[in-house]
Design a protein around this nucleic acid. Structure first.
Lengths: 328, 328
DNA sequence: CTGTTAGCGCCTTCAA
DNA sequence: TTGAAGGCGCTAACAG
């Protein structure tokens, strides 16, 4: 069924070496024999055996992507553009999901390396020097996004710290003097890689330090909805609820609706990520927008350039912008 | 860097054959030598070379999944459960996206086969006997979902026809006597595989035939939102807008809101898929729910069982249920 | 210009 | 119980 270069060689009465030269259009071959070989190959529907090829070349033209999951629309979108860029450059991609399980993530890294992927792109849940050296020692280049691991492992993302600081200033400029900041992942500090939540938190602190008279409460409860409601009750004046991700903001708006808490009448709400669901909810949610597609595309591009021997920057930021909407 | 079985053999003063026996825990080896070999292998962090192994065994423990894209949350979810089931069974998965491009889909099928995937799961955009025989001739088993290709290629999905018929009856039971059915993909009939939209359309026809006094208009425009608005204006009495997918329903509700058309006051709206965005919109949308996770899991399970030599059913249906909500 | 040879790393059969 | 040899399919260096 599967036709090999050996068979073509036999049919054409030449050796594998010659067939190889013809197939790869390499010099040192009679035009006539080459044409004949190519013709036979085409007729027989010859397709090179990728594994054999990879085995000898040491390259598989394969990338591995490791994500938590693809529930959050952001990551689905990111994968989409990553995959498209990889395809353009001749690579096919494994997509594996760690489900935020540190053990599983490591198993997958090893599994991908065993399969000789040429490179790995990951949103890591592990962190620390041990993990960093695991990645550094890997036989394939790694790029990260979402969470950073160390300064030398390339990272493609947005400037979270700056983005949240701007959001806080924006909220302040709209007249709010109290803020409820929602970031449940922060409670996992020291247990998981929460690079992004931490950066965003720092942005909050930056802005609060700068704006003297803004009072901020930070909610990190797993069960953040009731916690926000309590915080709201304890707040004097009208607060803005700033969420480190749109998915939290959506939950909060839903709860507020059920409790007849008007948005933005009694509380402002702002999210982060600008996921498409926001278009359909009422009131439209203020958020932070950035080009996720570009992050995915860049991650693939940089990873492949690195694989192909180029030097790539350790840090690449994609621009973001504050999106004001009626929820504030 | 990468330690091979040959090196272990040298260190232990035995041959590759013996190392192999030890590593695979096969009989015909002295317990002492085996232990020594295993110890050395462990110390050196030996990991078998997957490609070499695959080359000789003819199996790669790899699956390929081909989706249109992962924009629709349904497919992201489906992939998630597919991947989890594959992992449990020791497989790693390539995820490639066809973007509904027929050419690209075929290229990807070939590319995956070149890479010797053990099986392929696909939501096909191609159709017809030629495509069916391409899949049938493939060196790896194929399962389909979303759109069917032919009776002999296993298909895992829901009973779309029945589900829409039930939806129509449900709408009728709620008192509606006119219906606007929205299914833009139907306009691609003959140009793309629109198995699912067609089945759903048949379900509509079934139910309309059965319920004599229900008037239905079918909207297939690419730009379906204004078309629905026009249809609404031309309708006497209060119609229900039944959408073949939640994503259409969301757009319509948004437009209705802007035009101050009350839902369900002036028109009912019902979707299909029960995507999570529905939880956040107002009014909550009636829809058809089914267990997408189970479809993904089953597709992986069946594909792998097929790969491992078992006979699997040509058609597997997952149950669905009508979800009534305030939009009707 | 073309054939020969030697591997890539692993597995499997057949001898010893 | 172990070694030796051949091969999976392809590539590459060296002869001829």
């Amino acid at each position: 069924m599967k036709v090999t270069s050996k068979q073509i060689a036999e049919i054409c009465g030449v050796t594998r070496g010659t067939v190889d030269r013809a197939l790869h259009n390499r010099p040192g071959i009679h035009a006539a024999t080459r044409d004949k070989i190519l013709k036979v190959a085409a007729e027989l529907g010859y397709r090179p055996h990728f594994l054999a090829q990879s085995l000898v070349k040491g390259r598989t033209k394969t990338l591995g992507v490791i994500l938590f999951d693809i529930h959050n629309r952001i990551f689905a979108q990111l994968y989409h553009s990553f995959e498209a860029e990889a395809r353009r450059r001749g690579y096919v991609v494994y997509l594996v999901l760690s489900n935020k399980d540190k053990e599983l993530e490591i198993q997958y890294i090893n599994s991908l390396l065993d399969r000789q992927v040429d490179g790995i792109a990951i949103t890591p849940v592990n962190f620390g020097t041990e993990f960093a050296s695991l990645l550094a020692k890997a036989q394939a280049p790694v790029v990260t996004f979402g969470n950073r691991v160390s300064a030398d492992i390339p990272f493609v993302w947005i400037d979270d710290r700056q983005a949240i600081a701007e959001s806080v200033r924006h909220i302040y400029a709209k007249g709010y003097r109290s803020l409820i900041y929602v970031s449940p992942p922060l409670r996992l500090k020291g247990k998981q890689n929460i690079g992004t939540p931490e950066q965003r938190h720092l942005g909050l602190l930056d802005a609060c330090g700068e704006l003297g008279d803004l009072r901020a409460t930070v909610v990190t409860d797993r069960d953040f909805v009731p916690a926000v409601v309590r915080a709201l009750e304890e707040t004097e004046g009208k607060p803005a609820v700033l969420c480190s991700s749109d998915v939290y903001a959506l939950e909060i708006v839903r709860e507020f609706k059920q409790r007849n808490i008007r948005v933005p009448g009694q509380a402002g709400v702002m999210g982060f990520d600008n996921i498409d669901t926001l278009q359909y909810v009422d009131p439209p949610l203020a958020t932070v927008d950035y080009n996720v597609d570009e992050i995915g595309r860049l991650a693939a591009e940089l990873l492949i350039r690195r694989i192909e021997g180029q030097v790539i920057p350790p840090r690449t930021n994609v621009p973001h912008r504050i999106v004001d909407r009626e929820s504030l």
